[in-house]
Each structure stands twice: as structure tokens, then as C-alpha cells.
């Protein structure tokens, strides 16, 4: 009886999670196969790049390398081998560094998550804040000024904003370090290390997040203006709620719904856009890793990064689905 009851309560949630999972697995498999075939279209392979770099390659050494890396096998065989290795959670070995791909990616993962996750989080929080302020002061000069400013940010490439930040905050003011993810040559620990990380993180994170901050603020403003016109808000206002409480308790949940919906999709854009921002700030993230792997035709690394990116996007989208169900329980009963 009790179990039935629990199942009934948990039913809709399970459906959401199961729905996401049943959609996610074929998507990820599709992405793996698509990426694999895609990369075969690239002119040249890892052996060509290695041979070019060594400068002393012979026909024999090249064909030996091809056998060693499995690149002499037919395409279907290579794909089957890759999939079977993936099924054993083996991402392969980098043709460039001769290290397991999993290790290379794992070394970059914390900094990537910090940069991309921080940027997305910052964008959502700032977007909600700015959007709420603009919606509750709609039509006043603060709203107009912020709208104009956000429109400008929305139109400016993030990497250029990053360069301008380096120019202002690093070169002119000397406030923040202009490159890297930690001060080189120091063995900091505890609070000092945390502070050092934050000082390195703040500019790339802001540069990456500003575009999305503008997107979310505009979205929240538009949604909240609609919400603030509804009857339940009038009722809440009539019982004498403070305007800030009104927004915090009653309006923000509604305004969050479109933001959560698009934020899941935006994670992919952020992971891609991170390539340029990581280049500007010399941030050792996955984007830059993928770009370098592409240039040296290091397909195992590139495939690994693409796979992990897709898994992250799918996972965050599933999380967004659950969050949407919590924000608007009506979604669960549909």
C-alpha cells in the first residue's frame, strides 16, 4: 500500500527521468557514430601529422605507424573497434601525447566545468536579477538604460570583450592576471590557492557569460512583464506584499521557466564558445584541447571531448526537465 502510494507520487518524476534517458541514449550513440564518420572526411590523419612533424618519416615507418594506430583497418572495422572500446569505457590513446584520452580529458575537466558552469550560473543569476529589476521598473529610465546596455552586450563578440577586459583590468589597472588558470611556479594551498584561482577565473568567466546574461535578462524581463499583469499578482499586491517579496515569492518561479528551458540548450553553445575565450585567456580547458586535437588530427582526443560535451549537454537537459517539473508541476501531469 505504502509502496503504491510512493510510486504514485514518484510516478511523474520517474516518467520525466525515464523519458529523458530513453531520448538521451540513442542521441549519444548517434553523436558518437556521426562524429566518427565526420572526422573521416578530414583530409589527412594523425600519422600524416606525426610524419610531417618528425620530418624524417619513411614510407615504411608511416605504414608501421598506421598498423600500430589501427588506421590501416577499413572504416567499418575502425568504427566497430571504437564502439566496442567505448562500451568498456575506454576512450583510446591520444596519437599525439601517447596518453590515455580519459586521463588527458580528466586533467582538463575541472577547469572546464569551473569556466563553463560558472559562466552559465553567473548568466542565470545576473539575468534573473537584471530582468526582474527591468520588469518591475518597465518603461522607466533604469529599464531603458539597462535594455540598451544589454542590447549592446548581446551584439558584441565575447572574445573581444575578453580582450578589452585584459586591456583595462590587466594592462592598465593591473587588477587581474591576464592568462592561465593559476599562477605558475607557486605551490599555493588553502585560501591562497582559492583566491588565486578566482582571480584567474573572473575575467574569462565574465567574458563567456555576458552574452547569455543579456539573453536571459531580456527573456526574464519579457516573461515577468506578462506575469506581473496576472490576477494572482494583483491579489498578492492587494494584500500589501512588498514589491521585492512579490517578485521573489510569486513572479520569479514563472520567469525562470523559459530561462531553464533554453539554458540546457545553451550549454552546448557555451562549451563551443569556450574555445575562443580559452584561447584569449590561455585557460587550459576542453575547448582548446579539442581545437588543438583537430589541428593535429588527434581523433581519439577530439572524439572524446565531443562525446563528453554531448553527455554533459544531455545530462544538463535532463536536469532542466526535472527542474521544469518542479517549477511548474502542471508539466508533470501532461
Amino acid at each position: 500500500m505504502i509502496k503504491d502510494h510512493v510510486m504514485k507520487r514518484a510516478g511523474p518524476w520517474l516518467r520525466v527521468v525515464a523519458g529523458s534517458a530513453s531520448f538521451a541514449l540513442p542521441t549519444i550513440l548517434g553523436i558518437v557514430i556521426l562524429n566518427f564518420l565526420f572526422l573521416q572526411l578530414l583530409p589527412g590523419d594523425a600519422v600524416d601529422v606525426l610524419a610531417m612533424r618528425s620530418g624524417s618519416a619513411t614510407v615504411e615507418s608511416i605504414s608501421a605507424l598506421r598498423v600500430q594506430t589501427g588506421l590501416d583497418q577499413p572504416l567499418s572495422g575502425q568504427l566497430a573497434a571504437y564502439l566496442s572500446r567505448l562500451a568498456h569505457f575506454d576512450l583510446g590513446v591520444s596519437t599525439q601525447y601517447h596518453l590515455p584520452v580519459a586521463d588527458i580529458i580528466a586533467a582538463r575537466l575541472p577547469d572546464t566545468l569551473l569556466l563553463v558552469g560558472g559562466a552559465l550560473g553567473l548568466a542565470v543569476v545576473l539575468g534573473l536579477l537584471l530582468g526582474s529589476v527591468m520588469a518591475s521598473l518597465a518603461g522607466r529610465w533604469i529599464d531603458r538604460m539597462l535594455s540598451g546596455l544589454l542590447m549592446l552586450i548581446y551584439s558584441t563578440p565575447g572574445f573581444w570583450i575578453g580582450l578589452m577586459m585584459i586591456l583595462l583590468f590587466s594592462v592598465k589597472l593591473g587588477l587581474f592576471p591576464s592568462a592561465g588558470s593559476a599562477t605558475i611556479g607557486t605551490r599555493l594551498s588553502g585560501l591562497a590557492a582559492l583566491y588565486d584561482k578566482a582571480a584567474h577565473l573572473i575575467m574569462p568567466m565574465t567574458a563567456l557569460s555576458l552574452f547569455y546574461t543579456a539573453v536571459y535578462a531580456r527573456l526574464v524581463r519579457a516573461t515577468m512583464i506578462d506575469v506581473l499583469r496576472q490576477d494572482f499578482i494583483l491579489a498578492a499586491r492587494a494584500k500589501g506584499l512588498h514589491p521585492v517579496t512579490l517578485i521573489r515569492r510569486h513572479a520569479i518561479r514563472n520567469a525562470l521557466i523559459p530561462v531553464v528551458t533554453v539554458a540546457g540548450i545553451h550549454l552546448g553553445n557555451l562549451l563551443g564558445g569556450a574555445v575562443v575565450v580559452e584561447t584569449v585567456f590561455g585557460w587550459p580547458g576542453m575547448g582548446r584541447l579539442a581545437f588543438d586535437a583537430l589541428l593535429s588530427r588527434d581523433f581519439p582526443v577530439l572524439l572524446g571531448v565531443l562525446l563528453l560535451s554531448s553527455i554533459l549537454v544531455v545530462a544538463v537537459n535532463a536536469l532542466a526537465d526535472v527542474l521544469l517539473g518542479w517549477l511548474d508541476p502542471r508539466i508533470l501531469t501532461e
Binding site: T27, L39, G268, N269, V275, G287, A290, L294, L302, V305
Partner: peptide, 14 residues
């Protein structure tokens, strides 16, 4: 969904 799961900028670069 497949296309929206891949980071678009990486797709363009490839």
C-alpha cells in the same frame, strides 16, 4: 536534438 547536443562552434570548426 542531435545537432543541438553538439557544441555548434566545434561543429563549425570541424
Amino acid at each position: 536534438a542531435l545537432f543541438q547536443t553538439m557544441p555548434p562552434f566545434l561543429l563549425v570548426v570541424v
